[in-house]
Design a protein around this nucleic acid. Structure first.
Length: 860
RNA sequence: GGGCGAAUGGCGGAACCGGCAGACGCACAGGACUUAAAAUCCUGUGGCCCGACAAGGGCCGUGAGGGUUCGAGUCCCUCUUCGCCCACCA
């Protein structure tokens, strides 16, 4: 009797509904089971998900289901990082309100999550644009403010004159406005900062607490924080006696300073040149460089340029008077914005000195020789001996670095110091669609924080989006007009909103108590659930999000609000999914791979297209819509293919045609189950002695597979090899007919199918649930049943294939009993005709035996 | 310029501590079923050579070259190509 074909659409629908009804994935806050917080980075609701996004969620979901079966109380929540610019741009371009656009996208994306068959706990859903959420974002702002971690000061920002608004760094493409293409200007504006630099050292040190973070991510954070040890040295302006401090990692070269370089943005310049005959020229250079900087400085190796200010500075160690130059290579945002230039021992200073005819003074000579400044073709940056350096002559310069710094400290003209590349976090945005900064400007009291009990500062919905002028919030009378929280007099509200990275710096805490109206979270609950046991997301967040969230957690720890120092104990960054895109050189456009077809010719002009493997993107027309695959093959196939595509930490290339493999595999699994219904319902004790060889083999394979799948997930989330092993097991099951089998053998067959169904459940949950219920007679969900234990005894081999090598080359494979001793192995191996043939040529000088695997004879 | 990672059949990938290279899958080829196609199932599939197109056996083969080792895809050195991140960082 033929079983009907597997109706994946109906089965998957049934189980999605069942999980929902029974609340399978709703996570109780308190449980006897050990907790596991499995967090997937919450997405920005851009509207549509492709299979590349799907990889992230499927990965996390498979892991979460596995852990659930392993007996953990798993918290796997999901939400939306819902503030941000695209929503506002949609409002400007298409007249949709950012909130409507965002809500619509969230609804659409929640539908799409169903395509991936994910079992997140939607009861805990959060969205950062809701007042219930951003109220607490504002509350954290106040807390940070209270604790001296918020700062308001002037800072250079990207300003687009075309749109007359400030732009985020991400919106500046090659120095131009992303939207109107006009050149972006640097403007000094009052901005809000979080003082993350206070935590620079702890952000470095506590990386030891991050158990399994990819080394790559840790390195990126270390580089970003950019700690460098060196010295501060105070130079004096000859005329005025003002101090100009510099930071250097090479205090050992202090006696070789021949000029000073200062950034065009440096505030000291204006006063220094005021009234001098060079004033106009210098200021003009500054203005020009600053205008250029956005565009030119982004390009690779822009020419070093500078102008002499006409001012002289005094080198505090020897009284040398050196000229002060404004240069485009001194950066305001690093160190003090001024550099002592030592052309003899710094590549950039050398090039600059060469161009402008500035002197070169050698103060480090090679260990075994001398160095003449006139013959130098490049700076000498290697190690050597200090020379022409006053009291330090003859000292190795590596020692000199510390010695000079200490000497400067004693003399009161500087001293050892540590400099960080990390800058304070500029969190204010002159944009509407974000959490309003809860501050008020009062004529009498100054800048006053909103009282916590008055939160949230609601974002008004009735504003106009013109894309012109200031932040739309600034035009909302209703919003800006308020009273001073301190004196009650009329006052003005801050109209800047917070960077969306602020919202995502604490969301992992909110999931613990998502509906708490009394606070952002309950401390006891949060301390029980956090740190996150496994965080999963894209490597694109390696720096910003992960650094900010770490900073937030440390700040909250210091305030006593949480009891842990790091938010994410383990981090997994999954690789991107790429796909071939087709580019036509003649039409200068990307073509969808389907339209290009087999021959590779452009569908519009017929010329051959170029294929390129790339990240999925709309503009390259290489996105794969999960809906299409879902309709054609179902969720389980989409999941298994996605997991099977390759090791999850690596990029992988999507191949449409390869999806059929996992689909056929699941079809065979179904077929195997339903066509052995009767047998699978039986219960038999397995007596190993009753098994014919092929059934003993199957039993061993079954237990080996269970062990391998568990190990692959535990060790490295390598679902790809776990699935491959499951496929092997199914192939072995199908190679065997249970007809005529004795009860023990029938038991082995049933055990194989049962265990296979169970271990595949995290990857292909719907079909496994269905087989479990309708064929195997299981009740309830397979995810509430325990993960199978592999029996070491059942997995043990009695017979091994011994590889026999002569001089490292395989000459025979012999089946031998597993426990055979070395002497017997040797005898058996030597008895093989092919082995003895290769041994004939010489004497055996050495024999190496690898237990259970291999024997190698070395002959000369 | 600096840092990190990668390179294995026609393709995606496997090989975990140095021990059978190419698991598993795609694609392809042949066959079964079918009026036919699709679907499904079975068989084969790194290259070259000896042998008979068999059985069996040999040589080569993991980007290139060298080294360590009884034995190297894996470890060490040099180089090439590609990818990502940072980049005038004083």
């Amino acid at each position: 009797m033929d079983e009907p074909r597997y109706d994946f659409a109906a089965v998957e629908r049934k189980w999605r509904a069942r999980w929902e009804e029974t609340g399978l994935f709703r996570c109780p806050s308190v449980s006897e089971k050990p907790k596991f917080y499995c967090l997937t980075m919450f997405p920005y609701p851009s509207g549509t998900l492709h299979v590349g996004h799907g990889r992230n969620y499927i990965l996390a979901d498979a892991l979460m289901r596995y852990l659930k079966m392993k007996g953990f109380n798993v918290l796997a929540p999901m939400g939306f990082d819902a503030f941000g610019l695209p929503a506002e741009n949609a409002a400007i371009e298409r007249g949709i309100h950012p909130k409507a656009w965002t809500d619509k996208n969230i609804a659409r994306m929640k539908e799409q999550f169903a395509l991936f068959g994910t079992g997140f706990d939607w009861d805990r859903e959060i969205a950062s644009h809701t007042p219930e959420y951003y109220r607490w974002t504002q509350w954290f702002f106040l807390k940070l403010h209270e604790n001296g971690l918020v700062d308001r000061r002037k800072a250079p920002v990207n300003f687009c004159p075309g749109c007359s608004t400030v732009l985020a760094n991400e919106q500046v493409v090659e120095g131009r406005c992303e939207r109107c293409k006009s050149e972006v200007e640097q403007k000094d504006l009052e901005q809000w900062f979080f003082r993350i630099t206070k935590y620079a050292q702890r952000l470095l040190d506590d990386m030891d607490l991050l158990e399994s973070w990819p080394e790559r991510v840790k390195t990126m954070q270390r580089n970003w924080i950019g700690r460098s040890e060196g010295a501060r040295i105070d130079f004096k302006v000859e005329k005025t006696g003002e101090t100009l401090s510099v930071f250097t990692t090479r205090p050992d070269t202090i006696f070789g300073v021949t000029f000073m370089a200062i950034a065009p943005e440096h505030p000291l310049i204006r006063t220094l040149v005021q009234g001098s005959d060079r004033e106009a020229e210098v200021l003009d250079f500054c203005a020009r460089t600053r205008r250029q900087s956005a565009i030119e400085r982004a390009s690779e190796d822009s020419e070093k340029e500078g102008i002499d200010t006409g001012c002289l500075l005094v080198n505090p160690v020897n009284g040398d008077r050196v000229p002060l130059w404004v240069t485009n290579y001194a950066l305001m945002e690093y160190g003090t914005g001024a550099v002592m230039a030592v052309p003899a021992h710094d590549e950039r200073d050398f090039m600059f000195a060469g161009k402008y005819g500035l002197p070169v003074k050698v103060v480090i000579r090679p260990r075994d020789g001398f160095l003449d400044s006139s013959g130098m073709r490049e700076a000498f940056v290697g190690e050597g001996i200090m020379t022409d350096s006053g009291p330090f002559d003859g000292m190795p310069n590596a020692e000199g670095i510390k010695a000079v710094a200490e000497w400067l400290r004693v003399k009161g003209i500087g001293g050892p110091t540590v400099n960080y590349r990390l800058k304070d976090w500029l969190i204010s945005r002159q944009r509407y669609w974000g959490a309003p900064i809860p501050m008020v400007y009062c004529g009498s009291c100054g800048i006053v924080p909103v009282r916590a009990e008055d939160l949230p500062v609601l974002l008004p919905l009735d504003v106009k989006f013109t894309g012109k002028g200031k932040n739309p919030l600034a035009y909302s009378e209703e919003f800006t007009r308020t009273r001073c929280p301190r004196c009650g007099k009329p006052a003005k509200r801050e109209t800047d909103t917070m960077d969306t990275f602020v919202c995502s710096s604490w969301y992992f805490l909110r999931f613990v108590n998502p509906r708490d109206a009394a606070g952002p979270f309950d401390k006891a609950d949060v301390d029980r659930w956090l740190p996150v046991d496994q965080y999963i997301g894209g490597v694109e967040h390696a720096i910003m999000h992960l650094l900010y969230a770490r900073f937030f957690t440390k700040a909250l720890y210091d305030m006593g609000l949480v009891g842990f120092k790091e938010p994410f104990r383990n981090l997994f960054t999954q690789g991107m999914i790429t796909k071939e895109s087709k580019f036509c050189r003649k039409c200068l456009g990307y073509k969808s791979p389907e339209s290009v077809g087999e021959g590779g010719a452009c569908p519009d002009c017929g010329t051959p297209t170029e294929g390129k493997i790339d990240k999925m993107s709309k503009s390259q027309k290489n996105v794969v819509d999960p809906q299409v695959l879902f309709d054609k093959f179902g969720s389980d196939t989409l999941r298994v293919y996605t997991l099977f595509i390759g090791p999850p930490e690596k990029d992988a290339e999507w191949q449409d045609r390869a999806v059929i493999g996992p689909h056929a595999f699941l079809g065979r699994l179904w077929d195997t189950a339903v066509s052995n219904r009767a047998l699978l319902a039986e219960k038999h004790e397995i007596l190993p002695g009753d098994l014919r060889k092929e059934f003993a083999d199957l039993r061993r394979k079954t237990h080996q597979t269970v062990a391998k799948v568990s190990a692959d997930i535990d060790r490295s989330f390598h679902f790809n090899t776990a699935i491959a092993a499951s496929m092997e097991l199914l192939n072995e099951i199908r190679g065997l007919s249970p007809a005529g089998a004795n009860p023990s053998e029938r038991g082995v067959y049933a055990e194989a199918v049962r265990m296979l169904t169970t271990i595949l459940a995290p990857f292909a949950p719907h079909i496994c649930e269905e087989i479990n219920e309708s064929v195997l007679g299981g009740s309830g969900s397979i995810f509430t049943s325990p993960w199978p234990e592999a029996s070491a005894e059942a997995a043990a081999v009695e017979e091994i294939v011994l590889v026999v090598q002569v001089n490292g080359k395989v000459r025979a494979r012999i089946k031998v009993p597993a426990g055979m001793d070395d002497d017997r192995l040797r005898e058996t191996a030597l008895a093989d005709p092919n082995v003895s043939r290769h041994l004939k040529s010489g004497n055996i000088e050495k024999t190496v035996v690898v237990k259970g695997k291999l024997i190698n004879f070395f002959v000369r």
